[in-house]
């Protein structure tokens, strides 16, 4: 394709990205560095601040249960409520990623079963990539940037909750060193979604053709946008290998939680995605 077409594709995907994803990297980095006129985020660093900030996370849907009124019981409930709210937000984010996928030229013309497969296998990878701009080495923004939750607090939760986020921090700190901006991210997300090697795809060729065009667009974009960053295109693509391992580990952890946490019930949309995934 001509470079003008590739640039138009990049512009189109960037516009979709801005339309469907409420918290951009530019905004997240402004919040994290204090360079915004908005209020600084509320910091959650322990159980007390989690309870104080709960109303901002909108995680009070689960009623307090009568049989657990001890301090330990209340803390377990606060943790569970927090992870339920994370699930609700994840389900919303899946919906946003779906709209973004549908905006990729040619996606909605693919076999409908293949559209389902691409989303099923791609969406958690996309969500992990989208988490990276919200994170720094010390913590992560949540609730659309209203809250900063510290990495140490997440590590201090009981098992297996404490194991959920640490691998994402390790990945994100390295991924953020590539310094992609929102327009680069939009193309990279489309590349991830259009992976022709997902299990069970019926018609791989049109998916690979679409991905090839987006890859050309990403390569051109990175060369233009980051002229001094050597081999950036290759470095970005290498992250896709790390992502698959992260998703496999994440799904195993969720399965473990389903078995060990009596109060744990997985959001139906997330259940659909994770059932028979890897």
């Amino acid at each position: 394709p001509e470079s003008a077409d590739l640039r138009a594709l990049a512009r189109h995907l960037y516009e979709s990205y801005l339309k469907y994803f409420p918290l951009t990297k530019a905004k997240a980095r402004a919040i994290l560095s204090g360079k915004t006129s908005d209020n600084a985020p509320f910091v959650i660093h322990d159980m007390k601040s989690l309870m104080e900030g709960e109303h901002m996370i909108n995680c009070r849907q689960m009623p307090m249960q009568e049989h657990r009124r001890s301090d330990v019981g209340i803390m377990r409930e606060v943790e569970l409520r927090f992870f339920h709210s994370c699930q609700s937000r994840s389900a919303e984010a899946v919906s946003e990623v779906t709209e973004f996928a549908k905006s990729i030229p040619g996606f909605v013309n693919l076999d409908l079963n293949d559209q389902v497969t691409l989303l099923k296998y791609g969406v958690i990878e996309v969500l992990i990539i989208m988490m990276a701009p919200l994170m720094n080495k010390d913590g992560t923004l949540i609730s659309y940037g209203q809250i900063f939750m510290t990495r140490e607090f997440l590590k201090s939760l009981r098992k297996p909750f404490c194991e959920m986020m640490e691998p994402k921090f390790e990945f994100s700190v390295k991924f953020n060193m590539l310094e992609l901006d929102d327009s680069d991210m939009a193309l990279f997300l489309a590349v991830i979604i259009l992976s022709g090697d997902r299990p069970g795809l019926l018609n791989v060729k049109p998916i690979e053709d679409l991905q090839e065009t987006v890859l050309h667009s990403l390569e051109l974009q990175l060369k233009t946008n980051h002229p001094d960053s050597l081999q950036l295109f290759a470095k970005v693509l290498q992250k896709m290998t790390d992502l698959r391992q992260l998703v496999t580990d994440h799904v195993q952890l969720i399965q473990l939680m389903k078995e060990t946490e009596l109060d744990w019930c997985l959001h139906p949309l997330l259940q659909e995605i994770m059932r028979d995934l890897y």
Partner: peptide
């Protein structure tokens, strides 16, 4: 496959903005 993924299928078929879940 789409039978086992009813919500994903609905999200894909929905023609407007993100679905309220």
């Amino acid at each position: 496959l789409k039978e086992k993924h009813k919500i994903l299928h609905r999200l894909l078929q929905n023609s407007s903005s993100p679905v309220d879940l």
